[in-house]
Design a binder for these strands. Structure first.
Lengths: 156, 156
DNA sequence: TATTGTTATACTCTATAACTATA
DNA sequence: TATAGTTATAGAGTATAACAATA
């Protein structure tokens, strides 16, 4: 296996018109897309002293009020990590902890007005930063791409 | 190279069924997709003691041999951060520093065989982890989605 | 002088283990 | 006992400022 030399930019073996039944090329494209988005989020987040992880928290809390454990699960991080993450954002007034009425052990998390406002500013900035990229597709292609992503992600 | 005019947060202007000429919904879908991929990468990376950032480095070094500054630029991070990042991965034998013949100040970075092997293992695992997600689309849709992403990201 | 990268320092991010409080 | 979350600790990730080497 691994003695393969490094071959620069060569699109993988698809001599047949369009094979790839496993969606391997799709996973690569999704990963590459994620890397590009992460780069933009990292850079813009830094301008507001927000880490990539904090921005992921914002994305989740935008329309949810999860408990700590759920937040950890969404992010793929340990619950102890979430404690510190929420601590710092709470000290900045960006989000808050709340009691859960049903279970005294549970802590719910939600954004403050200030947090939502900052999130929206960042969001608009990200939109502008990605415009040159999304603009490489025409309007019809953008709609198709959006629809496919939404379906894949389960928005429907 | 569109120098798009900067229009600050103007969300609601889609009374028509499918308008969105600015691709705002697309940016949201791309961000959500990136969040899902980040969650998977974070979790699987942790199993191999690789941070999300290390995986991003792997993704870049897969088919490139950049200098330190280029790596920093790709990642949206400071050059001093890259020094530590490369230090630790180099100590694990996953990548190496190399001299640049043209400019004595420059340090090139590239993966070792062991690094490429590990990257491939992680890659296969990510592919499997995302299969249920990509599998929500049929084969034709997957090909369309792949093609649109690749075109948008400049692979063509 | 300007540029490339490293180092020193001070944070944030992260997981593990031990802990408190509630169920 | 089991579960939800916090805290203590240690190490990785990160930026700023100061530094050395090269151009």
């Amino acid at each position: 296996m691994g003695t393969e030399p490094i071959h620069l930019d060569e699109p993988p073996n698809m001599h047949d018109a369009e094979a790839d039944p496993d969606g391997e090329a799709l996973v690569d494209a999704l990963a590459q897309s994620a890397f590009v988005v992460m780069g933009v989020l990292t850079r813009i987040g830094a301008e507001h002293e927000l880490s990539l992880t904090q921005l992921r928290v914002f994305g989740i809390l935008r329309d949810r009020r999860p408990r700590m454990a759920e937040l950890a699960d969404f992010l793929g991080l340990d619950k102890s990590t979430i404690s510190g993450l929420v601590d710092r954002a709470e000290q900045r007034g960006l989000l808050e902890r709340g009691k859960n009425a049903d279970d005294g052990r549970v802590v719910d998390v939600f954004m403050t007005a200030a947090g939502l406002e900052l999130a929206e500013r960042v969001h608009a900035q990200v939109r502008r930063a990605l415009a040159p990229t999304t603009g490489r597709l025409d309007a019809k292609e953008r709609r198709t791409l959006t629809r496919l992503l939404e379906r894949m992600l389960g928005s429907a």
